[in-house]
Design a protein around this nucleic acid. Structure first.
Lengths: 154, 154
DNA sequence: GCCAGAATGACAACCTTATTGTCAATATGT
DNA sequence: ACATATTGACAATAAGGTTGTCATTCTGGC
């Protein structure tokens, strides 16, 4: 059955609201580590995707490589990530989490755990699964539109 | 049935991803009107909530009144909103959309319509309804946590 | 009514996140 | 080999938002 426009709008509003609150909660949890939201997001990309180049991280997050470069430089200075020569491209080393970086990321995850578990307790598993599928479909759809737009422009 | 932690994390990731894509699509739609995202958000608040004071808008959006004040001043200059003396508080006039503001907002909505309708076509109504409920529950839960945190701090 | 304390508009300084532009060096396809 | 694209580095800029301050108005207890 097809969704009506009103419902689709309600979904987008709910997503926007959730995002802001999630950000506020995450910020309140990670204040003390000296790691900014951007740095944390890069660490997450490395934790999930393994070692990657700066431009690869930028593309996956749809931001400029210059922005990611700055964040990675900050992480390097903090000793949370390390570089390894890239056999495939000598300009662009592979970035990976150091032991220290992995440990810190694990500690941050650990800190999130009770909060997320608290959320989990309040929500029905089947409904959450449905919501995740809906949001992923929405993501794919939006991606297609964004690609088309970019395609139009060039 | 209770959701597990992994699923709850997947939900938060999906929300973050959706938000970014929604923002990108919305930006691409509203570039030409000379209305920034912030201004548009204030217009939305006024369209949905009727005339309000600046601090009231700020509170509903969890940002500082100073920030909203700047946006409202921009909107005033653009002739998109107007002020009316507030019988309840002489310092803080009531802000409302002008005819021009309402028309522009309607035009922007109209422009969104085919996009949202396209989304609606790709999604199942029942699933979307479930997703909206889940996200609203999530919102409430996060709100409770944020209030508690603020309560702790003071 | 009076007075302390809170809320408000106005203005300024600043921070964070992210973009665009540029340059020199390295890669890549033909 | 050569044109074109990609990359790291650096700088300038922009948007969105915060904090701080001042004078004014509002509110609640007395």
């Amino acid at each position: 059955m097809m969704t009506d426009v009103k419902q689709a709008l309600a979904l987008t509003r709910a997503v926007r609201g959730c995002f802001n609150r999630l950000k506020a909660v995450a910020d309140s949890l990670h204040l003390e580590h000296g790691v900014t939201g951007g740095m944390r997001a890069v660490m997450e990309a490395l934790d999930e995707g393994g070692e990657q180049t700066v431009p690869a991280i930028a593309r996956s997050k749809r931001v400029t490589r210059q922005h990611i470069q700055v964040l990675v430089n900050d992480l390097l200075e903090a000793g949370l990530v390390d570089t390894r020569p890239n056999p495939a491209d000598q300009r662009s080393p592979l970035i990976s989490l150091t032991r220290k970086g992995r440990d810190l990321f694990a500690r941050m995850r650990q800190k999130e755990k009770p909060v997320v578990a608290d959320l989990a307790r309040a929500l029905d598993a089947h409904d959450v699964a449905t919501a995740v599928v809906v949001l992923q479909r929405l993501n794919d759809h939006l991606d297609a539109r964004l690609r088309k737009r970019i395609g139009d422009g060039s």
